[in-house]
């Protein structure tokens, strides 16, 4: 079947029941999304489907024909990181780092939809994603930093 991942069409030879996560990691070698619980309970596997966060470990590819899938690799690269990635680096928001790609993807979805989300909205929005190192304060700091970077130019702003 055909999958649209990070704005590229991929022909994937997979059973339609295969979780998206396995296809991303095993077939497309996109390893940012992580396998955590496999039950849609921890958020380490979070990617975007049509701009909304989904747990790729419980999302069979059968559901995804014709939909736009975005992984962390689709936002930026190590050489040219996207604002959310830059913000996480600058805030040094990773301890072990396993949850961070999922955190970034869920935060990205919020900031795309609601650039002016306040702290309470950000906290509530990130609730499904778990971090076992206790890096939450730095993660929140990074999301606020990314929000500043991504703020749309206000009318009247210089240059």
């Amino acid at each position: 079947m055909k999958l649209n991942v990070n704005n590229a069409q991929h022909d994937v030879d997979a059973d339609p029941r295969t979780p998206l996560l396995y296809v991303l990691r095993d077939d497309l070698k996109l390893n940012a999304a992580k396998f955590g619980c496999g039950l849609g309970q921890c958020g380490a596997c979070t990617v975007l489907v049509n701009g909304e966060p989904v747990f790729s470990c419980v999302t069979p590819v059968a559901l995804l024909a014709g939909k736009e899938i975005t992984t962390l690799e689709g936002l930026g690269t190590a050489e040219n990181p996207a604002p959310i990635q830059r913000a996480f680096i600058e805030a040094q928001a990773a301890q072990c780092g396993y949850c961070i790609p999922g955190m970034m993807m869920r935060a990205q979805a919020l900031l795309q939809k609601n650039p002016h989300a306040d702290d309470a909205e950000i906290r509530a929005w990130l609730e499904p994603n778990l971090c076992r190192c206790g890096t939450h304060m730095r993660i929140l700091h990074a999301v606020h930093r990314a929000q500043e970077m991504m703020k749309p130019a206000q009318p009247g702003d210089a240059g």
């Binding site: 039950l39 849609g40 747990f55 559901l63």
Partner: peptide, 10 residues
């Protein structure tokens, strides 16, 4: 538990 499919099913 059961995961929701609001964002993956149209």
């Amino acid at each position: 538990i059961m995961p929701g499919f609001a964002n993956s099913m149209d």
